[in-house]
């Protein structure tokens, strides 16, 4: 016989809301980087405007978690899921902030010709966004092994970031052109934001490991 139906319904609603937030965050990352590559300021503005919605969702989900802790005394896997959700929404909100930062760069350099077609940054964006997607997928499936595999991909993103850093610094040193230096600096920041997104995805994967196994450990 299943008891505490009301509680488990509420918890499932929070879980669903978290996944909705995750989907919106993922979309914000893709849109922000596409806006940068295509110099599409309207798309960038949409990402910036959408950030308030995500901030609101974070507060709403946090409130739901606190209510369940206060009123229902969750235990065991329920407790771990609520603890995981509380941490994951912070990572999602930070990822959304990073997407917003990238969109702001799009607007800042919109009237400049790009020094070269962007390749590494969109590639980093695809990898980071996929990590976010898969970390949330691992959450749904409560799949510890998959979460660990997602976290392992962080190294590849770091490697691209490191190579891109060297490349952009080299361009700045060679050109000594103030406009190009400014653009390279902005692109360097964009790459840094994407590298951070992969770190946040790794954090989400850590929470999935905790949820599934009860073990708290650092991954990536």
């Amino acid at each position: 016989m299943v008891t505490r139906q009301v509680f488990h319904d509420e918890l499932e609603k929070l879980h669903q809301r978290l996944l909705e937030m995750g989907a919106l965050v993922e979309e914000a990352v893709h849109t922000s980087v596409r806006s940068l590559a295509e110099q599409d300021t309207a798309a960038a503005q949409a990402v910036i405007d959408g950030d308030d919605v995500l901030d609101g969702m974070e507060l709403e989900i946090e409130e739901g978690c606190i209510h369940l802790i206060a009123l229902q005394q969750p235990m065991a896997k329920d407790l771990r899921l609520i603890a995981a959700i509380l941490k994951i929404i912070t990572d999602l909100e930070r990822i959304a902030d990073n997407a917003t930062n990238i969109a702001e760069i799009t607007i800042r350099i919109a009237d400049q010709k790009l020094i070269k077609p962007l390749e590494d940054i969109p590639r980093m964006a695809d990898m980071s966004a996929q990590m976010v997607h898969d970390a949330l997928d691992a959450l749904v499936k409560q799949d510890e092994a998959f979460a660990r595999e997602v976290a392992d991909r962080d190294d590849a993103v770091d490697a691209i970031y490191s190579a891109l850093f060297d490349e952009l610094v080299e361009i700045m040193q060679a050109d000594q052109d103030p406009v190009r230096i400014a653009q390279c600096s902005n692109l360097l920041f964009a790459a840094r934001f994407l590298e951070r997104i992969a770190d946040h995805a790794t954090n989400i994967a850590e929470r999935v490991v905790y949820l599934a196994s009860g073990k708290r450990e650092k991954l990536g």
Binding site: P74, M75, A76, K77, L79, R80, G214
Partner: peptide, 14 residues
Amino acid sequence: FENPEDQRTEDYIT
């Protein structure tokens, strides 16, 4: 209460 081993414990306390 955080991470019981046995499914029956899990079911009871949740």
